[in-house]
Simulated scan of single mutants.
Amino acid sequence: MAIAAPASAQPDAVAVAESLFNRGLADMLAGRYATGCPALSESHRLDPRPGRLFTLAECEARWGRIATAVARYNDFLALYSRMSEAEKLQQHERYRVAVEQRDALAPLVPQLTLSLPGDAPQGTVVQRDGITLGQPSLGIALPVNPGEHVVTTRAPGGPVHEVRFTIDRSESRTIELEVKLPDGARPPVTPQGPGDQAVVPAGARGARPALPPPDAGPSGRRVVTYVVGGLAASALVFGSVTGWMALDESSVADRECKDVPGQPGVATCSVVGHAAGKRANDLGLASTIGFGAGGALAVAAVLLFLTEPPPPRPQVGQVGQVGAMRLSLLAAPTGGGVAVRGHW
């Protein structure tokens, strides 16, 4: 017996949803996932029901869109946790399949990190497969479905730059995006101080002054510090997620297991409770390892940062060198000055 439809669903919407569900289910069973899964998704949107959500997750999994399927299974499991005991009894078999499918597919979901260059103009728009990604979605690994993807970037007033790529199951990839500037636009140049003037050799008048050499970037030790800090953050996030999952499985085991009267510490469990208890133990161990590794890596990152030696300073007395000229400060008991040495 199906769970009653929400009171907000209109009669016409329920009829349309039922028709879409039947068509989507038929297409799914025939292997026509490109039409079946969207029909099931629209059916669930019009008239949300646990059975429709579960069937949509199954369709996405068969279609190979495993990131979407895992998200749908998690939605169903969250809905299941809020059901009454009678409703859980009706949906128990779907719950069991959803847990097994989610646990099997989650490790296979690809992870994609998209990053903008540091000089990207404010207001640059990034889209992945037509979905606009805000700043919080950049620079971090996000789950995506396996297969081909299209990422576009567009600076204000500039042309669209497109990147196409294919990502496989279990793959982790980082892509540094490129941004095309508008015609005639130049990247900003850091202004020099009022006393800094470029010296141009006599034979090169009219030529553009040479820009100072680019910054060499962070030291190797600083890069190691960043890497260790990133690993620490990842381990702590892993510990938190697996800890939450362990608590969720533990609550299932508590419901499915009953203490044996007169035998302290002995309980009888259903098949579901026994499986949930085992998963809770495994996830709890993984959470402990994640927190331990994250804490150790965080301490290592802090120590690397605090013990990093200061960058080398320029030699005392040498002001600078531009082109073929060298300027030096002179000091003596009777006065001082500036010496200019070079060749022309």
Rank of each mutant, 00 (worst) to 15 (best):
V14C: 04
Y73Q: 04
R102C: 04
L116G: 07
F238K: 06
T124R: 14
L247Q: 13
E178V: 06
A324R: 14
M83T: 08
P38G: 09
A86S: 12
V266R: 14
A267G: 07
V266G: 10
S115W: 02
R102Y: 06
S219P: 11
R173C: 04
E256F: 08
L25C: 00
L29F: 00
Q197G: 04
G243E: 12
P309F: 03
F238V: 00
P159G: 04
P38C: 05
R32P: 00
I175D: 13
Y226R: 07
A280E: 09
R45A: 15
V144S: 07
A204G: 02
R52W: 10
V241A: 14
V241K: 13
F21W: 07
R221E: 09
D12T: 09
A246G: 08
I140E: 12
R94V: 00
S172K: 14
G284A: 15
P194A: 07
P188Y: 12
T35V: 12
V16W: 06
R222Y: 11
A296K: 15
Q135M: 06
L79D: 13
R102A: 09
A69G: 14
A301W: 02
L114G: 03
G292K: 03
P212I: 09
A78F: 06
P312T: 10
P314V: 10
D168A: 15
R221C: 00
